[in-house]
Design a protein around this nucleic acid. Sequence first.
DNA 1: TAGCTTTTCGTGTACGTACCCAAAAATTCC
DNA 2: GGAATTTTTGGGTACGTACACGAAAAGCTA
Lengths: 367, 367
Amino acid sequence: MITIKDIAKKASVSEGTVDRVIHNRGGVSKKTEQKIKRILKENNFKLNPIASALALKKKYNIATLIPKFNKRNIFWESPYIGIMKALTEVENYGIQIQNYSFDQFEASSYLNEFDKLFSTHPDVVILVPMFRNETKHVAKKLDQRDIPYMFLNIDLEGLNNISFIGQDSFKGGCVAGKLMCLSLNDGDECVTVQTRSNISNYHAIYKRIEGFNNFLDSESNKIRNHNLKWDNLNALSAVKAKLESCLLQNKNIRGIYVPSSRASVIASCLSDELHKKVNIIGFDTTDQNIKFMEDDKIQFLISQKSFNQGYEAVRTMSDFLIQKKTPPKKIFSPIQIIIKENLAFSNRNKISFQIENANPKKNTSES
Amino acid sequence: MITIKDIAKKASVSEGTVDRVIHNRGGVSKKTEQKIKRILKENNFKLNPIASALALKKKYNIATLIPKFNKRNIFWESPYIGIMKALTEVENYGIQIQNYSFDQFEASSYLNEFDKLFSTHPDVVILVPMFRNETKHVAKKLDQRDIPYMFLNIDLEGLNNISFIGQDSFKGGCVAGKLMCLSLNDGDECVTVQTRSNISNYHAIYKRIEGFNNFLDSESNKIRNHNLKWDNLNALSAVKAKLESCLLQNKNIRGIYVPSSRASVIASCLSDELHKKVNIIGFDTTDQNIKFMEDDKIQFLISQKSFNQGYEAVRTMSDFLIQKKTPPKKIFSPIQIIIKENLAFSNRNKISFQIENANPKKNTSES
DNA sequence: TAGCTTTTCGTGTACGTACCCAAAAATTCC
DNA sequence: GGAATTTTTGGGTACGTACACGAAAAGCTA
């Protein structure tokens, strides 16, 4: 391994001069600069990041802004754990993380938490842009202060985020469509279940529906698709009533498509008899969804590896800060197809980290 | 962040003494040892791995022994690239890797390469135990010299390997079975395709068939499964003839199960007409398999993320060497279901690494 | 208690890079 | 040509840990 000292010797200058060239610190005559650059290149010199990290006392602050999670809606726990996992790997490089969490149904909470975050002057920000208009405001403030930011899980177009990590929701919908076609026979029908109030993640859900319909339309023997909408999924009895009547009226429906992470809610509303008849296709391996899958009440889950999203977001931003590596504009998560048989192997990273760190800091709310 | 210096000050001893306690180097009186240990615990002291790595000049040698890859059989390229990717991340911690590759159809080549490997006195070994008896011999030699070793991709029971990383092949077969059931209608039949000479990986293929049959048997409306065997898949015209006659004789066959990574060979033998009729389910996203999937000639591939296997193997062994972390006895890779629609998102890690490092060292053979 | 061995401990240097300060060299100005 | 200024460069120290070396303390023998 070639070091700065070696380069200095070869160029017969001091280590300090080589260092100045490497970091474009200036104050080096053109002649010696050229010479050193040539020697650096010839020897394929690479900085030792270990030594750099040690010498560089500089601390970098990453701030995150993601939704709170609780027992009823636990989806956001997963990226959070991914964030903490990544932190253990990069903290010795001087990376520090401040987490802020907001109520995903309250735009004001989003803004409040952002203001707290903003006042701590972070170096970069990782955020879930849950609300479109509010995010415009947030992005503007970050832009003004030249703080780079990336989007996690939800993509919004037209802003200056340096990156986005998450799933291609349209393609996710296509995959769901294909799985639906596969599991239905000729003449069978299906129904897409929507919650109108699901402003959160609205964009992704819209795209998932679009992808699903797109796939269905592209098939030669078209499957008829119905639509069911609720204002919200909290009034379980109302959900149940409407769902059952729909299934009774349309005897050919043998598939339910839930383009959100709440497939478990729908599954919990079906009688055993109906479960035997219909397949449910949903998204995300939340604990609740997993339970219903183990009981054969949900057939397919499309997972976006949200744990990895959190993990990769932090790693990406750390590389950006430490090594000045510009991240790709979009980083697409895999579209994983989960069935009962491969369920056990889908979450290993997350689970093993949880076991190692039995007492993670709390990010929950009881709301 | 608390350092050794801080601890030394708190205990009013020198840094050297603290260091001796931390590393159990001995030569410290019981009294001060206890005191220092207490203070270490009270302050939740953790070594800074960055500084450790820098100070520790010690180099660790990891040797790998994996099959050669070439244009016709490219499966083993993927774990190899994973190994090289991991190397870039750990080389600054003093990890060095020597790769040895053997002809997967020649046990003698396996032994020869192992002997070369063995003579370089590596600290640990990562190997693909392709041949059962030969591996017993190999393992014995490693045991005698107390060199820890782990198995990659193929698991052999009853040896002293400290870990195994790979897929649960039985479960992989189950998943294939489920997919087969899903894509067939009542009355349809399927055929399992085997190559007798595939000693390589024989165990995994056997397990995959077992899992497949197990799933089929567990279903209420049983699907009839045929079996086709060849001595090898190299004589394409023979394969084609036998396959076509089988499909003609059994008009109800609408699914082909290929429990190896060579689904592309089977796919290449079918006429367009037959492709319209039958689904092919195979394993591993080799470049050839991917091509046929894009052309709708292979419907399902079950991927074991072999890139990640190579990557994780190196990371696991590095943690073992540097941090003395004992790895789990078995590390199971995810069982990924790949269809045309999610294909593009399945290999991101590997591909992005390949792009960054346009000129990887060669490990190919033309055999 | 002197003299010796053994145990226990402190100091110093190295790892490779970052960055500060002052010395040396080059340039400018009168 | 000499002083003042600017540019260019070298040397030194710090980051936190590992480890060698030798000094101090303690234990032992006679």
